[in-house]
């Protein structure tokens, strides 16, 4: 990971609150804080993994970054330009540089268009002229993602799930983007196909110098492809760190619990593994717990966790965590610095 002075993507205090209305005149009575103050940078060439359980806001975050949704607060800065409230028209040229891969390879491709038309659409929409014509360019991309270029005239239903996801990837690559947001890119695929697509994403990153933000719930997949990982819980980042630090010495109890919950294909150790079992489900983002949102399920929670929200503090180099009682923290680190703590 290279340290560059200006990150490719910078997210500062990003918020998305969906209003809840009530009564005769639809008066706003509250808000679902789907994303509630996210800050992180993504530098060129790296992969940031965004993990969390359903309702944590990871998909909303992806849509905010690509401006499929408009943030209600905070800033999204892409290549030094503030795109937070840019109009759709002004965004259009930027869409070339920022693309999205979706989860479901079945529903994200128009069944009535040929592969050639689907992958070639970005050229037409952006009005890009290519040296040897669009068809040649599309066939080159198909080859790049491991599809047969001769399948140019086939329809999506003639392909298997894995191949369809390759078509989806080919479409995003058409205009040589700089940043790709991948929302659960492999979770709808069979195990053997998942690995193919993960490898493809890695190869493409090396070849085309891509930057990824990968949104996923599968912690092992995220570890495999990410350089840095952010863990989200109910609209907030609770921990963000380099891959190795996060997986080997997680500081936030939630991260620890998540890692412990992943079933591991190791029969010898299944009886001896120490398990941390969280009680209950993720609370509703409609009415999240006060202060530290994890305190209702945390085995380390104390009184302060219910009253003072722990800030996201850097406890080791590049390792930020929002917890009053972090695990694996260096001795001199001051968790949840009292000076910056936000009273709930």
């Amino acid at each position: 990971m290279s340290e560059s002075p200006e990150p490719l993507l910078s997210v500062q205090g990003l918020e998305k609150h969906f209003p809840i209305t009530k009564g005769l005149i639809k008066r706003q009575v509250g808000a679902v804080k789907a994303v509630d103050g996210l800050s992180f940078d993504v530098v060129k060439g790296e992969t940031l993994g965004l993990v969390g359980e359903s309702g944590c806001g990871k998909t909303t975050t992806g849509r905010l970054i690509t401006r499929l949704l408009e943030p209600t607060g905070g800033k999204v800065v892409f290549e030094g330009r503030d795109i937070t409230h840019m109009s759709q028209g002004a965004l259009r040229p930027l869409r070339r540089d920022m693309q999205m891969i979706f989860q479901d390879p079945y529903s994200s491709l128009n069944p009535r268009h040929t592969v050639g038309a689907i992958v070639g659409a970005p050229f037409r929409i952006q009005g890009v002229k290519t040296e040897h014509g669009t068809k040649k360019a599309v066939q080159d991309i198909l080859e790049l993602v491991g599809l047969n270029p001769e399948h140019y005239n086939r329809y999506p239903h003639e392909f298997s799930g894995g191949q369809r996801q390759r078509i989806g990837i080919a479409r995003t690559l058409a205009l040589k983007p700089k940043l790709i947001i991948a929302d659960e890119p492999v979770s709808a695929l069979d195990v053997s196909i998942q690995a193919q697509v993960v490898n493809l994403l890695e190869d493409l990153q090396n070849e085309l110098d891509l930057t990824y933000v990968v949104i996923a719930h599968d912690l092992s997949v995220v570890r495999h492809i990410s350089d840095r990982v952010a863990v989200m819980y109910l609209g907030k980042i609770v921990e963000i760190a380099d891959r190795q630090a996060l997986y080997e010495a997680p500081m936030h109890p939630y991260t620890t619990a998540l890692l412990s919950a992943v079933p591991v294909p190791d029969v010898k150790r299944r009886t001896e593994r120490e398990r941390i079992r969280l009680q209950g489900d993720v609370p509703s983002p409609l009415n999240p717990p006060s202060a530290c949102r994890f305190h209702t399920r945390c085995w380390k929670a104390q009184e302060i966790c219910k009253t003072v929200e722990p800030p996201l503090a850097e406890l080791a180099t590049g390792h930020q965590v929002a917890c009053h009682f972090p695990e694996n923290a260096p001795k001199d680190a001051v968790p949840g610095d009292a000076g910056t703590a936000v009273p709930a």
Partner: peptide, 16 residues
């Protein structure tokens, strides 16, 4: 094919 959390990270997955 499957990345595993109980072991060190492999550089590459070996898909079918």
């Amino acid at each position: 094919s499957m990345p595993r959390l109980d072991r060190a990270r492999t550089e590459r997955l070996m898909p079918i």
